[in-house]
Amino acid sequence: MSTLGPDAITRLWDGHSASLVLYAQQWCDAPEDVVQEAFLLLVRQAMAPQNPVGWLYRVVRNQAINASRSRGRRSRREDAVAAGGQPWFEMSEDDRLDAAAATAALRDLPIQEREAIVARLWGGLKFDEIAGLSGTSPSTAYRSYQRGLSTLRERLGWKCLEKKAKTRT
């Protein structure tokens, strides 16, 4: 085992930084700092972790929770105001779901369901990896994911949209 080279680091950054920011955003409001710090930690490791992606998600999770604790002590009100309107996704006309609505619906989910959905959908983690992160069993992580997905679908009115699309065609 050796340290990660520049190419590997670049690939990790390009492939996972945005997802990691979204993941960290589930706990704290300065996710970019947390992700950058995690990547710096990864680069400075004497030995590369066996699973760098899983390692990054774990470090980001720990750092984000720590950041939310220390920040929460300072000013909860300011955070709530600052976190209000920023969508978590890029706006695009091609998307079948509205980014702002998806952000709002996702934000309202319980943290376990939110974490499972973000780690699975945008992080590409397996359920046993998600379970390892959240300290639950894989079946619990799967149930959280399914429950959160169903809730999101209801809140975003997905069935209505699909039916409308079918009737138009």
Partner: peptide, 29 residues
Amino acid sequence: AFEAALGSLRPRTDRLDPSFRAELVEEAT
């Protein structure tokens, strides 16, 4: 289908500092 549609949303990348990537590569080398 809903899962696919939700997964097609792309997380924002504009919040990341573009210069940090170069710093990271420099750090790695």
